[in-house]
Design a protein around this nucleic acid. Structure first.
Lengths: 271, 271
DNA sequence: TAGATTTAACAGTCATTGATGTTATGCCAG
DNA sequence: CTGGCATAACATCAATGACTGTTAAATCTA
């Protein structure tokens, strides 16, 4: 029914057109605060109905708010949420982060992937490598879907209450299940970080991420550039709790050197 | 990569042709014990390459064994296994069973679905009904995939070790997770049953099914006709442990009346 | 109630995907 | 080494599904 956060394969040309149009709409609505449907119809050149459908989807994702006569932008805090929207942005960066993260994985390891779109890219790459047997733990349904058919991957699923927004299993029982495990390395991502601290806006997510961090003997944090030097409502953990921080290239040198005081920073080339 | 046990939507005509051809092949190989590829090419009218691909798939599923110059049937014990093969047989019967099972569900209930292809049909139907909010617990990945996008369905996933053959999460942690829950009714299916007893050939499956039976205040057993009056290696539970037994029409009257002495029998019309 | 906006229903287009066949190459047994 | 058998690579074809547009019904606001 609803288009999933992930559905194997590269996006089609048609889908790309749709996404580009939606980004145009988002940019315009964010810039002006509000907009009428007719306004957006002219802006995009698409039909009235198509714009309505785009707005429905964006509203469902929480990116804009629909009201009679037009749409308005949502407050920026909520803006970042929604797995499905985030998945479509910064894909090149996330791809590069995932590639760099592979360097941290060795044959026979057990690894854990948290609920983040970056980890979906990482999961896809695990099949390419000839890493021999690898145990992968995750509560992220799209990642399970990707990993299930891979040879030489022992998949351990974390169950719990399914959360539609994040497309993952959360809640108390998920936290308990994570607590029963220990892995060699856990790969995490979060929505905001400063030099000293990482953040996330949702308490449920903070709890499961913390449990996952405890379950990992090593902790790697993968962050695309849009998330740096920003904060969110809840503190997740100090930067120094992570053994590795993987960033994209192009990050300010001063910032990188400041971060290096708290953890080991790797720059992902390419993407 | 491998064609999944389930991928939303009804099977295409082309796929149906493929399945019918594979069933022809299986029937022939089982009847004769062995067969050459040329033999099967003539039998089916398909090209050499297509037959080879069919045989590869059937071999991967463990239904036949390939050797140089032909194929042979597998011993009958193993024959029944493999989620992917079973899913494609008796679909009409399973569809009817699922429809009948819906009668046992009332709005607001919590239900549990075990790892059986019949339950995939049931899961698909849960979206149609206007049952109000419904909590559904399962360890069966295709069922999760189907349920995740349904409105008004609270999905609880059972995690654990992913098992490729069954496309489900099994093992100790899955059993523990099931043990922590109680639902109004659990829907089960198994590979063989007699008048007095139900069976399954795999001990891992027996254990999780038993845990699920304990978790349900009521227990419904859904059985297509091919599974009746047969046994398998491991005893699962006595017939009288189930509150409901749903069968297809066409089952011998005498057998139905004998079963009725142990549990409440429902006949699923249609299909 | 009138006018406009929104949603629903229907239909067409296009592309990706899965199934099949054909040809070419590799492999195994005698 | 040679002849069949098996696999790999490539091309074709149909069909499903995703997007979009058009028209009609429904809903809301003034």
């Amino acid at each position: 029914m609803t288009p999933s956060a992930d559905r194997s394969g590269p996006p089609s040309r048609r889908t790309q057109a749709r996404e580009s149009r939606q980004q145009t709409i988002v940019a315009h609505v964010v810039a002006n605060g509000v907009a009428t449907v007719n306004e957006l119809t002219e802006l995009t050149g698409a039909s009235l109905m198509t714009v309505h459908r785009d707005l429905d989807e964006l509203a469902r994702q929480g990116v804009v708010r629909k009201f009679h006569g037009g749409v308005s932008a949502q407050p920026s805090t909520v803006f970042e949420s929604s797995s499905e929207y985030r998945l479509r942005v910064q894909t090149a960066e996330k791809e590069a982060l995932a590639t760099a993260a592979l360097q941290l994985i060795e044959p026979g390891m057990s690894i854990m992937l948290d609920t983040s779109t970056t980890n979906l890219f990482l999961a896809r790459k695990l099949g390419d490598l000839e890493l021999g047997p690898l145990t992968v733990v995750t509560n992220y349904l799209p990642a399970m879907q990707v990993l299930r058919s891979m040879q030489d991957i022992h998949l351990i699923g974390i169950g719990g209450d399914y959360n539609t927004t994040h497309d993952a299993f959360l809640g108390m029982s998920a936290i308990e299940a994570v607590g029963a495990l220990t892995v060699d390395i856990v790969f995490l991502s979060t929505s905001a970080m400063t030099v000293t601290t990482t953040y996330h806006q949702e308490p449920d997510i903070v709890m499961i991420k913390r449990a996952m961090m405890q379950a990992g003997q090593r902790r790697a944090l993968l962050m695309d550039p849009t998330k740096l030097e920003r904060t969110a409502l809840h503190r997740l953990a100090p930067t120094s709790d992570y053994h590795h921080l993987v960033l994209n290239e192009g990050v300010d040198d001063r910032l990188v050197s400041e971060l290096s005081e708290h953890t080991e920073v790797t720059i992902a080339r390419g993407g």
